[in-house]
Design a binder for these strands. Sequence first.
DNA 1: TTCTAATACCTCGCGCTTCTATGTATTAAC
DNA 2: GTTAATACATAGAAGCGCGAGGTATTAGAA
Lengths: 115, 115
Amino acid sequence: MAPPKSDLPQGTLDLLILKVIALGPVHGYAIAQRLEQVSRGVVQVPEGSLYPALHRLENRGLLAADWKETETGREAKFYRLTRKGLKQLKTETADWQRLIYGIGLILQMADGGAE
Amino acid sequence: MAPPKSDLPQGTLDLLILKVIALGPVHGYAIAQRLEQVSRGVVQVPEGSLYPALHRLENRGLLAADWKETETGREAKFYRLTRKGLKQLKTETADWQRLIYGIGLILQMADGGAE
DNA sequence: TTCTAATACCTCGCGCTTCTATGTATTAAC
DNA sequence: GTTAATACATAGAAGCGCGAGGTATTAGAA
């Protein structure tokens, strides 16, 4: 309903991409679709963010890719997680959880909440 | 226990600063301390991030500042929220909630969750 | 047939933020 | 008398997200 305009904070995109790929090999275009669908429109990833991110992750050795055919008979680059990528996913997920916990504490803060 | 290394995602710092200031006038140095204490060490704001952020927010008209004396008899720049700043705080808080909701959906995703 | 829309990939460059490093000055403690 | 904490500040580097642009294929509408 509400215009779901919401830019991603720097750093979170990698985590989301790793998570989607961890569920099974997917190609880039499908990753963006999954993220938008699953998050119910909250997370929208423009291609200008997506593909550079994928290349970054691949260069860091967190992803590996092979060209295959999609179900619709079209060539696409399917990504999968490396062992290093899986480890990174776990670390970043934990970091994220800790972060939103900490930020939650701050946002719930009311007058007289400290000293 | 665990090394609390956790860089802030871009954009969240403004939100946290606005939130702290909303509780009453504070000076910059104290803001960083409050954030670290309340978040139990999760949020750590280096001065090189803090002061530029404060200046940014002031230039955008979200904060106003006056020099006053601290309880320890020292000069410090006390910030307070403008009306615009309060409005911004509400918007950004709502945006943040929607974002962590969306990201939460993605991180909870398991195989077979979509098709 | 021709045009549009969707799929699927890519890069360039702007803009913005964060962080490290460095600097000043004062007060308190050791 | 030197170190640590308080309190402010800036400069420069590095990184990321995004808009805008580009290529190519396929499917469907006009």
